[in-house]
Design a protein around this nucleic acid. Structure first.
Length: 230
DNA sequence: TTAGCAAACGAATTGTCAAC
DNA sequence: GTTGACAATTCGTTTGCTAA
């Protein structure tokens, strides 16, 4: 489909609403949410949420899947997640926390979080820079995986297809809205987060959606592999 | 001041699931 | 098969904002 002023403004127009943006921010965790969960997150009635979800579906921002009486909604893909994350970095004026709970949640998200299916926050940026320092990524004229980087991901993440030709780029520099620097997106970023969760480097924070906790084992592993410390 | 529009809400309806 | 609970959707109405 050709990119036109109309198609871009239609996409942006759908995001230009506080409730729909709140839903998209929740969906950045990469999970599928029910309409009811999204309604609670956006602090609107279920009926209103249903209308918003229809608008997001029509614009191609999200996809849905019906399972019984539930309707599961997720972001249409990592490209959409990166657009939202990048928007956040552009407008990311620091918000003064209104409570201790908000301050803690903001701090945890800034330290480490998921950006759809890859690692973001201070740890995400540190990993990106560690990969670059180690010569596994080259960041001149865009971001590419070096031959050493391909071998590294095949060994560490046990996923040789990270660099295989496909629809999704192997690596992407995704602008981090809290750090204002790049973290690792693309297939390699997703593989690294998957590996980290499977191996217990990171734990999902039950209290703060999208937030991740770096375990002592994760700190040691990332320090050994990439010389990364935050 | 008024008309038009978008967002939000609540009530009613529909569909699904689980227990009996 | 029936019934109650729950989730999602539709529809009509209200509210607030903006432009004329």
């Amino acid at each position: 489909m050709p990119v036109t002023a109309e198609s871009i403004s239609a996409f942006a127009g759908v995001l230009a609403d506080r409730s729909r943006t709140a839903m998209c921010l929740a969906l950045l965790d990469g999970r599928a949410w029910t309409a009811g969960e999204l309604a609670r997150t956006a602090e609107v009635a279920r009926s209103t949420a249903s209308e918003h979800i229809s608008a997001l579906l029509a614009a191609g921002v999200v996809t849905d899947e019906r399972q019984g009486r539930h309707r599961y909604v997720r972001l249409a893909g990592p490209e959409v997640a990166e657009v939202i994350e990048t928007l956040g970095s552009v407008v990311g004026v620091p918000v003064r926390p209104t409570s201790l709970r908000t301050a803690r949640a903001t701090g945890r998200l800034a330290a480490a979080r998921t950006c759809y299916d890859h690692l973001a926050g201070a740890w995400g940026v540190a990993v990106f820079e560690g990969l670059t320092r180690a010569g596994l990524l080259r960041t001149v004229d865009g971001v590419v995986l070096t031959p050493a980087g391909r071998a590294w991901f095949a060994e560490v993440c046990a996923e040789p297809e990270v660099s295989a030709p496909g629809r999704r780029p192997a690596v992407r520099a995704c602008l981090d809205w809290t750090e204002r620097r790049s973290h690792l997106g693309g297939a390699a970023g997703a593989a690294l987060l998957r590996r980290g969760l499977e191996d217990g480097w990171f734990l999902r924070d039950a209290a703060v959606p999208r937030a991740l906790t770096i375990t002592p084992h994760g700190r040691r592993t990332l320090a050994d592999l990439l010389g990364v410390a935050v």
